[in-house]
Design a protein around this nucleic acid. Structure first.
Length: 160
DNA sequence: CGGATTTGACCGGCGC
DNA sequence: GCGCCGGTCAAATCCG
């Protein structure tokens, strides 16, 4: 029964979950990362997240207590930028220095009204090139940048 | 001018 | 009970 107690996740959890490790690219991809389309991940029924294409592994955590039934996903990315444009609009609401990690952690929230999705981004302790991103909650709305649902005449993003 | 950032303060949970 | 630690608030500020 005590196993559910500590299923919170640590950075170390990512290290043992290589999903696609062959996707190693030089740091030069930093700029193009923003424009890259995302992968839709549905590890749990009813849950859906948009991940960048070059993620290297992810962890899905089941929430407990009040938020029981909801899920949280964390993934690890090799990137020199922390803020990745995943199509949603994020409003930053906090920054915190975490123990055991010299790099600060950033807290974001979806700007959409009524959308309580949260996102937290932190750089890995040792390897500065790795970024850990965590999504929490479900979106109230569709991805505004989802190309499939865009009106036929409009193309604000991805237009080279 | 309206909305996003910034940044320290505040607060609640947990472990000792 | 107290202090550490992580998460959020909110006021000032910035920026397009």
């Amino acid at each position: 029964m005590e196993l559910n107690r500590d299923d919170h996740l640590d950075v170390e959890d990512f290290l043992v979950l290589p999903h696609l490790e062959t996707h190693k690219e030089p740091a030069a991809t930093c700029s193009s990362l923003k424009a890259k389309p995302s992968i839709t991940l549905s590890p749990v029924n009813g849950s859906r997240w948009d991940l960048p294409r070059n993620y290297e592994g992810y962890v899905v955590e089941r929430m407990e207590g009040e938020d029981a039934g909801k899920f949280k996903v964390s993934f690890r990315t090799r990137s020199c930028i922390e803020i990745m444009d995943d199509g949603y609009k994020w409003r930053k609401y906090g920054k915190k220095k975490i123990k055991n990690n010299p790099n600060p952690r950033h807290y974001y929230r979806c700007s959409r009204e009524g959308c309580k999705v949260k996102k937290r981004v932190e750089r890995e302790r040792e390897d500065e090139q790795f970024v850990i991103t965590t999504y929490e909650g479900k979106h109230n709305h569709e991805n505004p940048a989802a190309a499939t649902s865009l009106p036929p005449h409009q193309n604000p993003l991805g237009y080279h």
